[in-house]
């Protein structure tokens, strides 16, 4: 299944946990510290550095870009550390979250309530994931170094659905 950004949430309804999807278009990186700052901005009603409605958020902090490359290694980081912030991010309309590892019950409920899905990229496969990135630019929080928000243009970025909109979880399916 191929999906293009911005994501039409209607297209997520029929996806199944364990299914591979290929995302093309724009995705944004955000991990621990970036989430903390985004939440502060949401709470203060400030304008966010990118549109969260329909967004794809990738929990990742790349290694530095080598000369001649588009981006450094860029695999997913473990997602549960973002659980605390995720329901608020989902309320803002984020459609697909990408990381690795399982989420808590609150996040799973919030995904269903907001019609969003959580997917896993391959952990420890940063070089492979980098090969799917066609351009990369810094969007916000440059002071955070690898934890800054990057805008990535990706083509057929491969992820596996973990939590679908039928309430299934691939980590619990076996």
């Amino acid at each position: 299944m191929k999906l293009h950004t911005p994501i039409d949430k209607n297209k997520l309804k029929n996806l199944n946990a364990g299914e591979e999807i290929y995302i093309s278009g724009t995705i944004y990186t955000a991990r621990d510290s970036a989430h903390k700052l985004l939440l502060q901005m949401i709470n203060n009603n400030e304008k966010l550095p990118f549109e969260l409605n329909g967004a794809v958020i990738y929990y990742a902090g790349p290694s530095p870009t080598k000369p001649g490359e588009i981006v450094g290694s860029i695999g997913p980081t473990t997602s549960y550390r973002m659980d605390k912030y995720t329901p608020d991010i989902l309320k803002e309309g984020a459609a697909i979250l990408i990381g690795k590892g399982s989420r808590n019950e609150e996040v799973k409920i919030s995904l269903l309530e907001n019609g969003a899905i959580y997917c896993a990229a391959l952990g420890g496969a940063g070089a492979l994931m980098a090969s799917k990135v066609k351009s990369s630019s810094l969007v916000a929080f440059s002071e955070l170094g690898p934890e800054a928000i990057y805008k990535l243009e990706v083509e057929d970025f491969p992820v596996i659905v973990v939590n679908d909109l039928k309430g299934n979880d691939i980590y619990e399916c076996h």
Binding site: G61, E69, S73, L122, G124
Partner: peptide
């Protein structure tokens, strides 16, 4: 799926060596 994951992890290691970029971004 599990077989494919392992094939991709191996492929990742091959790409990393070719380009001399980290196998995983968490170095």
């Amino acid at each position: 799926l599990s077989k494919k994951v392992l094939i991709n992890l191996k492929q990742n290691a091959i790409i990393a060596k070719e380009k001399m970029i980290p196998i995983c971004q968490d170095t």
